[in-house]
Design a protein around this nucleic acid. Sequence first.
DNA 1: TAATACTTGACTAAATTAGTCTGTTATGTA
DNA 2: TACATAACAGACTAATTTAGTCAAGTATTA
Lengths: 163, 163
Amino acid sequence: MKLTTKGRYAVTAMLDLALHDTDGPITLADIARRQDISLYYLEQLFTKLRKHGLVESSRGPGGGYRLAILASDITVARVIYSVDESIDVTRCGGQQNCQGELRCLTHDLWMELNRHVSEFLNKITLAEIIQRHMVRQVSKRQELLVSQIQLADINLRMKSSAP
Amino acid sequence: MKLTTKGRYAVTAMLDLALHDTDGPITLADIARRQDISLYYLEQLFTKLRKHGLVESSRGPGGGYRLAILASDITVARVIYSVDESIDVTRCGGQQNCQGELRCLTHDLWMELNRHVSEFLNKITLAEIIQRHMVRQVSKRQELLVSQIQLADINLRMKSSAP
DNA sequence: TAATACTTGACTAAATTAGTCTGTTATGTA
DNA sequence: TACATAACAGACTAATTTAGTCAAGTATTA
Ligand code: FES
Ligand code: FES
């Protein structure tokens, strides 16, 4: 399985979006702040997520992204797949051609592992994660943190613009 | 999970060794031929496998590697771990410090996936793979192929050394 | 002694990944 | 209309990782 930062960021960002979906369109800048991901990098990811129909966008002031479908219909596997990551662990990508044109000794083993992983990632949705895990607590903390930073930021500006 | 060629080669090579273990010490050159892996690369891997007690070596002519423990005691996870690959899919490596010093939104999700993968890889042993899968057929084919190549090789030498 | 085969550790090239940057287009608000 | 906002597009770079190579050794057997 090729689970890299890209795929993990995508899932993280989608979870953030799902958590704040009721607040109207969410800007990437917000997600970047809360989840500590580069804005530029998020832009790349969301282009792909949009093209795969997971989110929809609106431009201009007040714009941002929203989920295009229900959080309960978005599986983690789908998110990862949308940003071009594969959850395949075989070397051959299912082609059975590791060795010349033939399958290697371990092909069946990795295929079986594939089944296990896929079963898990295809089943679990954003909605479930939000319910099941301690995500809410983490999210709460992030919001607090961000507003503290914003406050500190304002203080800083007031100081620097003072005398 | 960081499952790269290194880990896959290690498992492939160990399976090859397990399959031929009754034939006395097996040279890396043999494994390299059969599994189409660079000899130099195998040397790196087997140094690690030896240090982790999975294989034992004997030098000199007639030397080679043998399994140090029963094939039924060698899990795939252990092989992968021995060559420094981790089967951890979290970004933090279990440290819960993705975000500053705190856990990110997805930590629990990846931990749960870890459990699934580990459960599978810690349970399955080389002995089981050999029994369960079609490995025997593949192995048979490889032996045939190698002996054909060796025959071709001999023919070639006879021709070139002839007139 | 000569050939074999493991041992050690440094080195390199290629590929991938993560991240950055420049500029453009659309849209709401003053 | 002007302006600020925020998505959109795509090229570019730096850093890291991976895969693979190599040279020089040591131990063992025939
Ligand atoms: S993993 Fe599919 S042939 Fe090797
Ligand atoms: S994956 Fe563990 S804190 Fe992010």
